[in-house]
Design a protein around this nucleic acid. Structure first.
Lengths: 344, 344
DNA sequence: TTGTAAGCGTTATCAT
DNA sequence: ATGATAACGCTTACAA
């Protein structure tokens, strides 16, 4: 039933080393022989065993994408499909496959370092910063194992990330251009690098305009609706309410939207709301949300490219890559009168 | 640097077959020896090569998930993460890994039948019906290769799907219970089994109530906002407008919502809108949408379990599995006065 | 209970 | 340009 290289060799009347060379299109084989052998391979419907090839070549032609499925609320999960698409589009054309693994199987022997790496199931790794602790990075560095982290992380030699600081600047600049001047920041965990960078960008831009962001206008919390709701209510009811909000996530922005609606605060006239991330449905809120789109497919592509470079032994130095976000202005912040109408 | 079974054997002063048996916890090895060998494996930080094991065992311990990344608009993509989570949770505990592959590499030799199956990269396959044509199913059947299709499909021996007919019935029943009686159906491609089954369920339930669904109230089209928008406008402006809509997707429902708003039609008082699928953000529309939640994690689990059964040689017969949807009633259809207030 | 040796299906190094 | 043959790292009869 199953046909191996040996079958092809004897059917073609050549040695299996010859067949192997045909398989790899070696220049030392005559066109004649190549044609003949290939013909027979077709006839016998032969496909080389990737496992045997892997053993001989000492490589799996597989790259691993490591995720923590217990964290179902992560930003990246929403865009998992497009990230995978991006990665696949580059590694697929280089004859690699993508293996998805869950760190959760963190049982004694189930650790991915064994399951995936030491067992040679994958030749390289891509992982989110949420699973890639500094300690793990160090271990991977020590093993000289090629990996890319999605998100900048201490200890990682090579990463791809969105430029969160620029994102903070872009949203802030947009608000200022629309005539807002009292910007509050909603959501984000204290100490979280993502939060820190975004806030930093926001502050930079305010500073340029001679403004600042007072501490009491920074509303820390999870990127959830409830948090956005509470934060907005508190801010809007305070003595000196802000005139605009930058939210860490669409969910937080939904909460803020709801709070404003309940308090009868007009959007965008009295309050502007802008948010990081662009979820598929954020343009369908009332009013539609101004948001910062992150090209997650591109993130996947970049991660894939960086990883392939590492595996091929180039890019020894290690480096990071920052992707620019894209501002999508919508009704929730557009309060200047325009002739052209609102963009979709 | 790298340590193999041979190294362990000589370090432990035993034969490598003994080490192999220890690895597989063979009962024919004394506890003494096991302890000794395991100790050495720990010391030397040994992990067996999955590739070598695979070659010897003639299996990859990998299962493939086949998708078509060119179809970025598919329903399942939104829930890709949770489907993967479901699959992984069952195959992971059986020491299998998940390989994601894209059919798009449909170049002559890049066909997944070669790349994945004939090359023995995976021991089993899960694929959406959109990539699994009847022809491909036949081929897989012929090869006796274990696979599960996500969605019922002609030619597939074994599949897992949501009960779309029941879904149609549930949404319809809910509308009837809320006092609606003129139900229109928005979205869905003529001939698409998904559409046919959902519509069928809808009709069954109407029939039970002595009602029917006239042809002109079936608005075929892609599951997009624009389609929902146009369909709703057309329906609402007609001589005899329906009093409620069942939409094939959240996007279509958004369009319908928008159309109603523009025409000043009150929701839910004058028009009820219910939709298949529950996107993460559908509860944030104004008003929030009544929708049919599909447990995609569970779908993954079921597919994984069915596949493992097939691989283990059980479940020879082949069978299908229908998962029940869950109705989430929200403001867009709840027009009866309630004491308890609206559910979230 | 342990050891020997023959696979598993390729690639790679030499000869020829 | 082609062929023998030894890896690659593990499993599995079969022997001892």
């Amino acid at each position: 039933m199953k046909v191996t290289i040996t079958d092809i060799a004897s059917a073609a009347g050549v040695a299996k080393s010859t067949v192997s060379k045909v398989l790899n299109d070696s220049p030392k084989i005559s066109q004649e022989t190549k044609h003949k052998v290939r013909e027979i391979m077709k006839q016998m419907n032969y496909t080389p065993s990737s496992i045997a090839t892997g053993l001989a070549r000492q490589s799996s032609s597989n790259i691993g994408l490591l995720i923590d499925m217990s964290k179902s609320s992560e930003f990246l999960n929403q865009f998992f499909y497009s990230i995978i698409g991006g990665i696949e589009s580059v590694i697929g054309s280089m004859k690699y496959e993508l293996t998805i693994a869950n760190v959760e199987h963190n049982h004694p022997e189930g650790h991915f370092l064994h399951r995936l790496i030491r067992s040679k199931r994958v030749d390289g790794l891509i992982a989110n910063t949420s699973v890639l602790t500094e300690e793990l990075c160090m271990e991977l560095n020590r093993l000289q194992f090629p990996y890319i982290s999605l998100g900048e992380v201490a200890g990682s030699e090579c990463w791809a990330d969105f430029d969160n600081e620029a994102g903070g600047r872009m949203l802030t600049r947009h608000l200022l251009e629309e005539g807002y001047s009292a910007v509050a920041f909603v959501g984000g965990q204290e100490g979280d690098p993502l939060f820190i960078r975004r806030l930093e960008g926001c502050r930079e831009e305010l500073l340029k305009a001679g403004l600042s962001l007072p501490e009491q206008w920074i509303m820390n919390g999870a990127a959830e609706e409830a948090v956005g709701y509470q934060a907005a209510k508190q801010l809007l009811r305070s003595e000196t309410p802000p005139d605009s909000l930058i939210c860490m996530s669409n969910f937080a922005a939904f909460g803020a939207l709801q709070a404003a609606r309940e308090l009868g605060v007009q959007i965008p006239a009295e309050l502007g709301i802008a948010t990081f991330d662009e979820y598929p449905l954020s343009r369908y809120t009332t009013p539609p949300l101004t948001s910062l789109n992150l090209d997650t497919f591109h993130l996947g592509v970049s991660a894939g490219e960086l990883l392939m470079e590492r595996i091929d032994g180039k890019n020894e130095a290690g480096r990071g890559l920052l992707l620019k976000p894209e501002l999508i202005p919508r009704e929730s912040t557009l309060r200047k009168v325009r002739e052209t109408g609102f963009p979709k």
